[in-house]
Amino acid sequence: MAYTIQHQEAASRGAFHIHQDGKEVGEMTYSRTNPSLVVVDHTYVDPSLRGHGIAQQLQDALVAWARETNNKVIPVCSYVKVQFDRDPKIRDVLA
């Protein structure tokens, strides 16, 4: 199932969010170190929805956003680090 992903950034912090029935069920957060570099530090998916591809959809949104905005990514979050290790097609956004 595809979810609507919202992105927001304020000051040096940002996040991608997924909501279902008005409740946040997934989040991927980052902090900005400079105008073109972000550190992805956390991914959360509601326990009842784990295994449904929500974290992958959040990461896909992050990668698409990084490409569109010429941002580079440093993955600190363990989930994101593993995904970058597994998928060479997304490594173009790595710092």
Rank of each mutant, 00 (worst) to 15 (best):
V38T: 09
V39I: 14
R86V: 02
Q56Y: 14
P47G: 02
V93F: 03
H17K: 10
V93S: 11
Q59F: 06
M28D: 01
R50H: 08
I54M: 15
T4C: 03
G22L: 02
K89I: 00
H19P: 00
H42T: 01
R91E: 12
K89W: 00
T4V: 06
K72E: 11
S48D: 15
F16C: 06
H42D: 02
E68A: 15
V82M: 10
K23F: 05
A11C: 05
S78K: 09
V63S: 09
R50L: 02
I90K: 14
R67H: 05
S31M: 14
K23I: 11
D21F: 05
P88T: 01
T29A: 11
I90L: 07
G14T: 10
R86S: 05
A55S: 12
V40E: 05
E9D: 03
Y3T: 02
G14A: 11
T43L: 06
R86I: 03
I90R: 14
H7E: 03
H17F: 13
R32P: 04
G51H: 07
T43E: 03
V73S: 01
A64M: 05
V93M: 04
T69G: 02
R86P: 01
I74S: 03
A2H: 14
Q6M: 04
Y79F: 15
Y30T: 07
Y3M: 14
M1A: 10
K89V: 00
P88I: 00
M28L: 15
H52Q: 15
T69P: 03
W65H: 15
D41C: 04
L94K: 08
L94D: 07
P88K: 05
K81H: 11
H19I: 00
V93A: 08
D21V: 04
L58D: 09
S48L: 08
N71K: 13
D46V: 00
D60L: 08
M28H: 05
F84R: 08
R13D: 08
D92W: 08
T29N: 09
Y79V: 09
E9C: 11
Q20P: 06
Q57Y: 11
